[in-house]
Simulated assay, not measured.
Amino acid sequence: MKWLLRLIVLAALTLGPLIAHAVQPAEMLSDPKLEARARAISTGLRCLVCQNESIDESNATLAHDIRVLVRERLLAGDSDEQIRNFLVSRYGNFILLKPPFEPGTYLLWLTPLILLLAGGGAIYLNTRRKPPPAPANLTSTEATKLAQIVGHTDDH
């Protein structure tokens, strides 16, 4: 019986985040097609407060306001692209979870590749490094001094 309880808890912890949404019933549109479009749009928009989740998942007040705005614009007859363009003009490309590949976002998109290449180059150069030269043999004078020092420390 304990295994069943553990299985249920594991399933809830694993699947819970997949079905968690911050969208409140009062926000939802009565038309299922429009609501599906609103959800599709809002899952691609970044919460400007949380910054690491979509407005569809965020409980922030600003995320709620943007979700409502998306639904209002859908009811006004705007296309999905018009809504995204409106939000980008208002908040910038940062509102998009996947910003476009354009001059203003090249660094954002290319930084992982640059870091990967730099790391690979550093590993390559490190493995190609010449081994340090072997230490030179001691001269007879140095060997005698060393023997005296070692012999001298043994007396103490």
Rank of each mutant, 00 (worst) to 15 (best):
M1K: 09
K2A: 05
W3T: 13
L4I: 10
L4C: 02
V9A: 08
L10C: 11
A12P: 04
A12L: 15
L13Q: 12
L15Y: 08
G16H: 07
A22F: 04
V23G: 01
K33C: 00
K33T: 06
L34Q: 11
E35R: 11
R37E: 14
R37T: 13
R39N: 09
R39I: 12
S42N: 10
G44V: 00
V49Y: 04
N52A: 11
D56G: 08
E57W: 01
T61P: 00
I66Y: 01
I66W: 01
L74M: 00
A76N: 05
D78P: 02
D78R: 14
S79G: 06
E81N: 07
E81F: 10
E81T: 13
F86W: 12
G92L: 10
N93W: 06
F94T: 09
L96D: 02
L96R: 06
P99R: 03
Y106W: 13
L108R: 08
W109L: 04
L110N: 06
L110A: 11
L113C: 00
G120F: 02
Y124R: 08
Y124T: 08
T127N: 08
K130Q: 03
K130H: 05
P132F: 13
P133M: 12
A134Y: 03
P135V: 09
P135Y: 03
N137Y: 05
T139N: 12
S140L: 13
E142H: 06
L146Y: 10
Q148H: 08
I149N: 14
V150K: 15
G151N: 08
H152W: 13
H152L: 11
D154A: 12
D154L: 14
D155A: 15
